[in-house]
Design a protein around this nucleic acid. Structure first.
Lengths: 405, 405
DNA sequence: CTCGCTTTGTATCGCCCGTGAACAAAGCAG
DNA sequence: CTGCTTTGTTCACGGGCGATACAAAGCGAG
């Protein structure tokens, strides 16, 4: 088809922002896109057409089912159902998982989770890439990036995993370099991105979950041990100057608490993690099974048990104090909790909100909304967000070359 | 002179960034400007010419005194000596002060400081504006904005002063509104900006002082009582979602400390402010004179006195703990201290750095530089920065209309 | 059903901003 | 003085986007 195809090279500067709006579901129609971008209809039209030509979105000339408003109905903008994907992976204590994720945080295909994790990061990363390549072959999708979430701080700009690793990798493991090299060896010509799992979970919640629309989003979560935090500022992850920010586990919350390896005592890490909950409830951590799972089950199945209730209240109080401290420093406009903290919030939302309001300096004037996380596999989706970022920043150069049409 | 004047309307997008570079002293010559902006020589030339036409900078065709390099020497860029100014003011416990501040944080003229401060904010603000108008008349400079620093948190977006006010103003005083109205009544047609004094001091240090070039700058300071903090992220003040961030005074640093009005105990506010220092040194705060002045004198004049040394060490330890906590959460790449903390740093820099390194999670891998502030009247200069911001963001629309030529 | 009203999509024009290339200018080294 | 290097200047070109005018698509009133 020698379809002449009008110039239509317009709208490069607004291309990224436009894609981001569709990606986060903030621009369901072309007229909304026009308003959100603050451009003219002509430009928005050109941008939408360009994104469609790139195979990223689909512009439906409105098949039917309008909610009924005045004037001509606007064209619906949807993510291309067969668009490109990124390879995303999540490594945690129990093992790892690889998947293909499309725009909008949609998990397109998942490889069976691996339930063990090698002490050699290269081995794990190679397995992740191998699984990803398998999925790409099966689905025939085009891969435009890759990201991995790891259970440790990731130093910037080196991309290495730092010491308090929650798995048995060596400190300083060059995760990003290994990932990029493994991808290249598998024929995927994109840099691999790596990030801390809680940071990436927060990013995912901000784009597609309970954090949508927040300007300054604070996320706090427990893994199996310890407490982690993350902050999304104006849509971007705040990882500090070297990737080590939001290490919230060592805020002092209980002056009478027990000692922590950090040299202080009564740290949030010690007082408000799953192990602390089990201890407070008079249970012993089982020899197998993680404290997190054990604690969540206990909280779910025995909410009526007075010792469990008391333990929950105690943890809520420590958590609330920690959150109040963070609110004093960061002044976020929303807090999202995950892991055991999510369950604690569900168990007694009022108590937690009351503690935070009472103990933060400005809590009484305007309380910060505290919400439970809403995504499954948030770290995985967050790893995908990391990989999508170059495309969201500049679709044309990120996707380069060949375009559909 | 009917000088034809070439079109030369070029370079609008890069105008703001270019001015910011000259303003902060990061672009001393046109060739450096070209490199920093990442544009061609042609564009940089047009931009510089436009800024000169606006009366903001001066392009010297190199009178002499080259350091001697290869090739043709580049034109020197200087701030216009008679360019526009902003009206800046600083309100503190002891009184207030008004001044005119030019680009580059240069204080052009200062009104005699007023040594009392009324309990009625409107009265103080009117006096500030009156003094400013007087200075404008005397100097004949053009005023393009106004900013005021107040000793309390300023709520965004309302621009009201919030409760823990360090002066006797009513809580919720609508500072910005009063300021803007007073300016309008005096014939100054610009919105007044208001900010917390420590925040603005941090902004000033970042642009013109010890914080220059830092990506994430943390400032901590004592006033006469209590401890305050501020954070500059990528050149912008981080005031949180409602202007209340960096309330660092209530970090717990001494689990065995005494009670604080916030409900906790051993807060930084209680343990590391001038009063705490006087108490630790076995002195009594004088009935008149502020604890800050008294503490600084004590530290300066009696450094050899063992009780003063001990008190300094104790405060350094608490301060170090607080800074370590902040480093864990914010991961700044530089810390600047002001007020009594600046003197404590000077008294024993190694001790403070050691405490911070030891008690922050990542301190051992890479220590954060901790520096003393270098500006006088930093809050005043910071208030001016606030007023300059619209000009730095978009000189053309901010200065509108009439241009020199 | 038809005629307006309202809102959206499309085509065209022109401006503004910035690049690229060619040339002139200014200093240094031989 | 001649060549080399770096910088300033001019000019033509082109991309991106606004403005405008017009066409298209629903809805409701008559």
């Amino acid at each position: 088809m020698t379809q002449t195809r009008t110039r239509l090279e317009r709208g490069r500067g607004a291309l990224g922002p436009a894609l981001a709006l569709v990606h986060t579901g903030c621009a369901p129609t072309r007229s909304v896109l026009t308003a959100e971008l603050g451009v003219t209809r002509a430009t928005a039209g050109a941008v939408a057409a360009e994104l469609e030509a790139l195979g990223l979105i689909r512009v439906d000339a409105r098949p039917g089912g309008a909610p009924g408003g005045q004037g001509r109905p606007s064209h619906r903008l949807a993510l291309a159902p067969d668009g490109p994907v990124v390879l995303a992976a999540q490594v945690h204590v129990d093992g790892f998982r690889a998947a293909l994720v499309g725009l909008g945080g949609r998990i397109v295909a998942t490889a069976p989770a691996c339930l063990t994790v090698s002490a050699d990061p290269a081995q794990v990363i190679d397995a992740v890439v191998e699984a990803g390549v398998g999925l790409l072959r099966e689905t025939g999708r085009r891969c435009v990036g890759a990201g991995i979430a790891v259970p440790s701080a990731v130093a910037e700009p080196e991309g290495t995993a730092l010491k308090p690793l929650r798995i048995a990798w060596p400190a300083g493991a060059p995760v990003r370099e290994l990932f990029t090299r493994s991808l290249a060896a598998a024929g995927i010509d994109h840099p691999g991105f790596a990030g801390n799992d809680i940071n990436l979970a927060a990013l995912a919640e901000h784009r597609h979950g309970a954090g949508r629309g927040a300007r300054h989003l604070l996320c706090v979560a427990t893994g199996h041990r310890g407490v982690g935090g993350a902050l999304v500022l104006d849509g971007r992850l705040h990882t500090g100057s070297s990737g080590l920010a939001l290490e919230v586990g060592h805020l002092t919350v209980n002056p009478d608490g027990s000692g922590c390896h950090c040299g202080s005592r009564g740290c949030l890490d010690i007082e408000a993690d799953p192990l602390a909950f089990l201890t407070a409830a008079g249970r012993r951590p089982g020899p197998d099974g993680s404290p997190l799972h054990q604690a969540r089950e206990l909280l779910r199945d025995h909410a009526a048990d007075p010792s469990v209730r008391r333990a929950a209240h105690q943890l809520i109080d420590w958590l609330g104090l920690g959150l109040a401290g963070l609110v004093n420093i960061l002044n976020p406009d929303r807090i999202v909790l995950d892991g055991l903290h999510r369950d604690l919030l569900a168990a007694d939302p009022e108590r937690l909100r009351a503690v935070v309001a009472e103990r933060s300096l400005w809590g009484r004037s305007g309380a910060v909304p505290i919400l439970p996380s809403t995504l499954d596999h948030s770290s995985l989706v967050g790893a995908a967000e990391l990989a999508w970022q170059p495309v969201l920043d500049d679709p044309l150069t990120a996707l380069a070359a060949e375009r559909v049409g």
